[in-house]
């Protein structure tokens, strides 16, 4: 199908974009790579009246690399991350994730900020950024605020992003040289959305361990018991811990097949991280 009629504007600055968004009274959508939004418009799932194109704003394509963290502009593409054309705070995790995200033609245009702002439950970045304890910087008419990615996504396509706010950047703390990670995405064809997805990050030097599930019928699911077991290196107790975590997430309504998939990916990712 074809996208519905819409107006289009390409502001010259982030401030102008936010001004336009605030004035649009909920009728505008911000477009960056458009790799989900245009598909949704073609399917008439999204029917915005105005598109505010932020893809080329220099503030949003910048990357800052300081001693502690790397801050990625929201409009950094998946392909730039895949190719490590920009600084990688994650010691290879983010390039690995990007390389399996949709297809190269999509990765060339799709952006990390767009993926987070949409928060498709089966998408990679919300879970991976939660596992990396990243922070999103949100910019609105009254100023900026930062929010942990773990708190940013609240449900299926639901976030704490205000209607007049734009994701400006994502700050990711650098993992130490000792850090280990594991990443397992299950899907039936390369590049598809995940049926199950697990990310494990262990950084002894930072005293940080986290096991996160994506494609989890909602926001990324942090597995607290599994994270603790991983921190103790007690692999023998891992399966039980994952099951406990999944049992506690009864509100996700996982069926038995999903419970198995989630357990398998969590176990495999933890084994990768600890091996």
């Amino acid at each position: 199908m074809k996208a519905p009629a819409v107006d289009y504007v390409r502001p010259g600055s982030l401030a102008e974009a936010i001004d336009l968004l605030a004035k649009s009274q909920d009728e505008a959508r911000v477009i960056a790579g458009g790799q989900s939004l245009v598909a949704m418009m073609n399917l008439r799932v999204a029917v915005p009246r105005l598109l505010i194109d932020i893809a080329r704003l220099p503030e949003l394509t910048a990357v800052a690399d300081d001693t502690e963290a790397v801050t990625l502009g929201a409009c950094v593409t998946h392909a730039a991350i895949e190719d490590a054309r920009i600084a990688d705070p994650s010691r290879g995790l983010m390039p690995k994730v990007a390389s399996g995200l949709a297809y190269r033609a999509i990765r060339n245009r799709g952006t990390i900020g767009g993926s987070l702002a949409l928060s498709d439950p089966a998408a990679e970045w919300p879970g991976v950024l939660t596992a990396l304890d990243a922070e999103a910087m949100l910019c609105g008419p009254t100023g900026r605020r930062s929010l942990k990615c773990a708190e940013f996504t609240t449900g299926i396509f639901e976030t704490r992003l205000g209607p007049d706010e734009i994701v400006e950047s994502i700050r990711i703390r650098k993992l130490s040289p000792e850090a280990r990670w594991g990443y397992v995405k299950l899907c039936r064809k390369s590049g598809e959305f995940a049926s199950a997805l697990a990310v494990v990050v262990c950084d002894r030097a930072l005293g940080y361990w986290r096991v996160v599930l994506g494609a989890a019928n909602g926001a990324p699911l942090v597995l607290e018991s599994a994270s603790r077991v991983v921190s103790e290196g007690a692999m023998g107790q891992l399966q039980e811990a994952v099951r406990d975590d999944l049992d506690r997430a009864a509100d996700r309504h996982f069926d038995e097949f999903q419970l198995n998939l989630h357990t398998v990916v969590a176990m495999r990712a933890a084994q990768q991280a600890l091996s």
Binding site: M1, A39, I106
Partner: peptide, 28 residues
């Protein structure tokens, strides 16, 4: 026309892109 089949792939600024998922106006 929603980015899955790949038949519309062209190069935009030298890189493959789905021409069904790019608005012509965004190619200015």
């Amino acid at each position: 026309e929603h980015g899955v089949c790949g038949a519309c792939t062209v190069l935009v600024d030298g890189e493959p892109a789905r021409s069904c998922l790019m608005l012509a106006c965004a190619c200015d």
